[in-house]
């Protein structure tokens, strides 16, 4: 995956300002991974995310061409800020006014899509997760995942309750992410078609 480091960012900005179209294509290639992830995070559906992504790219190119990027080496921050602002204005994500650590579980957006694929994704996702939970032979590790990722409890409290060191706590989360990825990739060709992102 190509990325957007500060040096190439400054170079790309200069080339785009100079009117080089190939530099615009290269910019999109370099930033689309992160930008697609962020626009998905700032919105509540795949469709909104795609709209926000397109809008951000178009506006960004316009501003870069017009010489409006004052710190070219911080182009990533500029793109991120643009996406965030547009997202906040137009695609307000669920907002919570929680006084304490609470999570709400929205149905994953795909599950509401009328086509079978949406249901499959939702169900498959649940199935993979159940498999990971079942594989965690230490009940305490399962509890860590649920309390932190789902109930969004404070990590210090979880560590205190379960007498875990922060290192162990984060190792559990790390291993679960890795395992999820492996399981997902083993099944991806059959059920998903592509990896997320």
């Amino acid at each position: 995956m190509t990325t957007l480091d500060p040096e190439s960012a400054a170079d790309l900005v200069a080339r785009i300002v100079a009117g080089e179209t190939a530099a615009e294509t290269e910019l999109i290639e370099r930033c689309q991974g992160a930008l697609r992830f962020l626009t998905r995070r700032y919105t509540r559906s795949e469709a909104d995310a795609e709209d926000l992504y397109q809008e951000t790219v178009m506006l960004a190119l316009e501003k870069i061409r017009g010489g409006e990027v004052r710190e070219p080496e911080r182009l990533a921050g500029f793109l991120r800020g643009l996406a965030k602002n547009l997202g906040t204005q137009r695609y307000r994500r669920r907002s919570f006014s929680a006084e304490t650590s609470v999570a709400v579980l929205p149905e994953p957006p795909d599950a509401r899509r009328p086509d079978a694929l949406g249901g499959l994704l939702h169900h498959e996702r649940a199935r993979l997760t159940r498999q990971i939970l079942a594989e965690l032979t230490v009940p305490r590790d399962r509890e860590v995942l649920v309390r932190y990722y789902l109930a969004e409890e404070d990590s210090t409290r979880i560590c205190d309750d379960l007498e875990l060191t922060p290192e162990h706590f984060h190792r559990v989360l790390h291993r679960a992410r890795q395992r999820y990825r492996r399981l997902y990739e083993e099944r991806a060709p059959r059920t998903f078609g592509s990896v997320p992102g």
Partner: peptide, 25 residues
């Protein structure tokens, strides 16, 4: 934007969180 490693990690973390939500739902 500059780090493929961290981007991958947050993607899979987000996926796992969605998986937990799917189970709970």
């Amino acid at each position: 934007f500059a780090c493929a490693e961290c981007l991958e990690a947050v993607r899979w973390g987000e996926e796992l969180r969605q998986g937990l939500r799917a189970v709970a739902t």
